[in-house]
Design a protein around this nucleic acid. Structure first.
Length: 484
DNA sequence: ACAAATTTGCG
DNA sequence: GCAAATTTG
């Protein structure tokens, strides 16, 4: 490593990662307040994460989010430097090349990120450069919330009860009013050269109309939600045919908005009540997932409950493809899978239904579903994805009754009563009357004929029989108990 | 209100 | 020791 110059004029680096925003960004604020010129850096590293390199939908979002961040930084007088490659090499190399005094970043919690950041910190230190790191992504970091025994929480409710008091006095940080740019002469890749957007085929045509990536879009989404839907959230969040949820998940994943900003805004703008309480609890679930990932770092790969290691999964390529393509013959499942494919997002209630269907009706390993979601969700997030898949599969941190097997018909009837959601995403069922919309195979022949549907031609017959699948899943769980 | 039951977290 | 545990049917 070359000799660093530590003159007063030497720059600092602000390394953006999953914090693509200006407001409530402790690393950015500290970097600007250091008084030194700042190099704002983003590194696209597809090597360090291994199998958890960003998936396709997530890359679409990243492209637009970086474009937005770059534009807002320019308004403050700074350029966003883009580099692609091994983050360790790039960050330590750039710091050394430029004689940076300090590197600022907000902490990440993915196991590969923690390992990477630790080695970067060590290497920087050896070269006389300090890494200064901050909490920009969580209400409270995992090592700061322990049970009375000193161990990590493994049950959500007590976790949330312990978390909430820490959120009483949140005061989000302001955005810096200006940034002194230190990036003159520093090479930046062109964003377009990263090819984050799909070309042929362009599977993302349905994404643009639904999403506004970037800090402004995140802010607008939060404000609209708190004005319109938050009050009734406890009831409407379960109805996939309505705009009952916040849709903040991709913004949160990329750090276009922080959970501290969300908590603070909700508490100040939504009247106290069931809706607000339920929404804050959802923010709490995200924290709980990060807590789990931090303390059980193989959560994305291994059953949290070891007894599931002997579970008789039964992978079938054809059946799996039917699931991914929304061709299972269960309308609520197919609607969800198609919404996911077309918009990069799926309503939370439906995520639970399709995940339960994959793991319990089809007996396909939750890790296959986790991988599919990783590639297709714009909000793909290692902690949330892993914790949630394990939760549904029954292998996760949950005193789950093993008999919790979602019935895709009754779930549909309960949460999409009029069938609006199904009709939106499974248009071939548009003309099927409400009465049969969640179970087309029960419709009399003349009803199907009038709706213009021949089962097996226009829409699949169910790929499994619910009652039999349920029995099979229960038997599989019993086999676990016997083995143990 | 129940099921069937283990594990967690607090006292 | 004892109460409690998102989302089930």
């Amino acid at each position: 490593m070359s000799t660093s110059s530590h003159s007063a004029g030497s720059p600092v680096i602000c390394w953006f990662r999953q914090d693509l925003r200006l407001a409530d960004n402790p690393a950015l604020l500290a970097a600007t307040q250091s008084g030194a010129p700042v190099i704002c850096l983003y590194v696209l590293d597809d090597k360090t994460p291994g199998k958890w390199a960003r998936g396709g939908a997530s890359r679409w979002w990243l492209h637009h989010s970086l474009a937005a961040l770059s534009a807002s930084l320019e308004e403050l007088g700074a350029r966003l430097v883009l580099r692609r490659g091994d983050a360790f090499e790039i960050v330590t190399g750039l710091a050394s090349e430029l004689g940076a005094q300090r590197v600022f970043w907000n902490r990440c919690y993915e196991p590969f990120a923690r390992e990477r950041d630790t080695s970067i910190k060590t290497r920087l230190k050896q070269a006389g450069c300090e890494a200064e790191t901050f909490n920009g992504a969580l209400l409270i970091e995992p090592w700061n919330l322990k049970t009375k025994d000193g161990g990590p929480y493994r049950v959500y409710s007590p976790y949330f009860r312990a978390l909430a008091p820490h959120c009483d006095d949140i005061a989000p940080l302001p955005a810096p009013s200006s940034v002194t740019d230190g990036s003159q002469g520093v090479h930046s890749d062109a964003l377009s050269s990263w090819s984050l957007l799909p070309s042929s085929p362009d599977w993302a045509t349905g994404f643009g109309p639904v999403w506004t990536p970037g800090e402004d879009g995140a802010r607008a989404r939060l404000e609209t939600f708190c004005e319109d839907a938050a009050r009734d959230y406890a009831d409407t969040r379960n109805l996939p045919g309505t705009d009952g949820t916040s849709r903040l998940s991709p913004h949160l994943h990329f750090g276009e908005i922080s959970p501290r900003q969300i908590w603070h805004h909700a508490v100040s703008h939504v009247p106290a009540g069931k809706g607000r309480e339920t929404f804050l609890k959802e923010i709490g679930w995200r924290e709980f997932s990060y807590n789990l990932l931090f303390h059980f770092d193989d959560l994305p790969e291994s059953n949290y409950q070891a007894k599931f290691n002997g579970f008789p999964w039964n992978f079938d390529e054809t059946v799996f493809k039917n699931w991914t393509r929304g061709q299972t013959g269960y309308p609520i499942v197919d609607a969800g899978m198609r919404q996911l494919w077309q918009t990069g997002w799926m309503h939370n209630r439906v995520r639970m239904i399709v995940a339960s269907f994959l793991t319990k009706h089809l007996l396909i390993d939750w890790r296959r579903g986790e991988e599919w979601f990783w590639d297709t969700l714009v909000d793909a997030d290692l902690a949330n994805n892993a914790a949630s898949w394990q939760w549904v599969a029954g292998s996760g941190a949950d005193a789950a009754p093993y008999f919790r097997i979602f019935n895709p018909v009754t779930q549909g009837e309960k949460f999409d009563e009029a069938g609006h959601y199904v009709r939106e995403w499974v248009p071939e069922l548009t003309n099927l009357p409400e009465k049969y919309i969640h179970a087309p195979w029960t419709a009399p022949a003349d009803v199907l004929a009038r709706a213009g549907i021949t089962l097996g031609r226009d829409y699949p017959k169910p790929i499994v029989d619910h009652a039999r699948a349920r029995e099979r899943a229960l038997a599989a769980f019993s086999s676990l108990k016997d083995a143990a």
